[in-house]
Amino acid sequence: MKDETWRRHANPWSVWTRFAAVPVFILSVWSRAWFGWWCLVPLALVIGWLVVNPGAFPPVDRPTSWSSRGIYGERMWLKDRKSLPHELKQVLRLLAVTGGAGFALLVWGLVALQPWPTIFGATLIVFGQLWRIDRYTRLYDARLDNTVAQ
């Protein structure tokens, strides 16, 4: 993404409406049991929203909220992965594995229309994303303070 898009994506409305899209996405896919192919209409709307979302809100130039600092921290991470503390890299790897497992469970649950893997998978994905944002927030704050991120 371009710098302007990152600043817009750092808007808390962008972050939280992306999280709000998760249950809507799940419901859209699940609705194939009730609406058949018409489920593609709400699914397309959700996917379209996720595509335009990062640029849909006013930019944040000075991040003060937890989510804004997290997005700025994610940008720092993408620009300079090599200089990150080893502990942060380990946590981010663990969260990637957790997110992958959540995604696999979510897909299984949606294909089979089974509630427990769907809910558990979505929970793992959201939990992992929130934890990642928290790690990125700490990275951002640490870099501002010129300290080592925990």
Rank of each mutant, 00 (worst) to 15 (best):
1 M>I: 10
4 E>H: 13
5 T>D: 00
6 W>V: 07
7 R>F: 12
8 R>P: 04
13 W>T: 00
14 S>E: 01
18 R>W: 04
19 F>T: 10
21 A>L: 12
30 W>K: 14
32 R>K: 15
33 A>T: 14
35 F>C: 00
39 C>F: 11
41 V>G: 02
45 L>F: 14
45 L>M: 12
45 L>D: 06
46 V>I: 13
50 L>R: 15
53 N>Q: 11
56 A>M: 07
61 D>V: 01
62 R>N: 09
63 P>F: 05
63 P>G: 03
66 W>Y: 04
68 S>R: 02
69 R>V: 00
69 R>K: 12
69 R>I: 04
73 G>I: 06
74 E>T: 02
75 R>M: 10
77 W>S: 00
78 L>E: 09
80 D>M: 06
82 K>A: 06
82 K>M: 06
83 S>T: 13
84 L>I: 03
84 L>S: 00
86 H>A: 01
88 L>I: 03
90 Q>I: 05
98 T>N: 05
99 G>F: 12
100 G>Q: 07
101 A>C: 08
104 A>C: 10
106 L>R: 04
108 W>H: 15
109 G>R: 02
111 V>Q: 07
112 A>D: 11
115 P>F: 15
115 P>L: 15
117 P>V: 09
121 G>I: 09
125 I>A: 10
126 V>M: 08
130 L>Q: 03
130 L>R: 01
131 W>S: 03
133 I>Y: 14
134 D>H: 11
143 R>I: 10
148 V>Q: 06
148 V>I: 09
149 A>P: 12
150 Q>T: 08
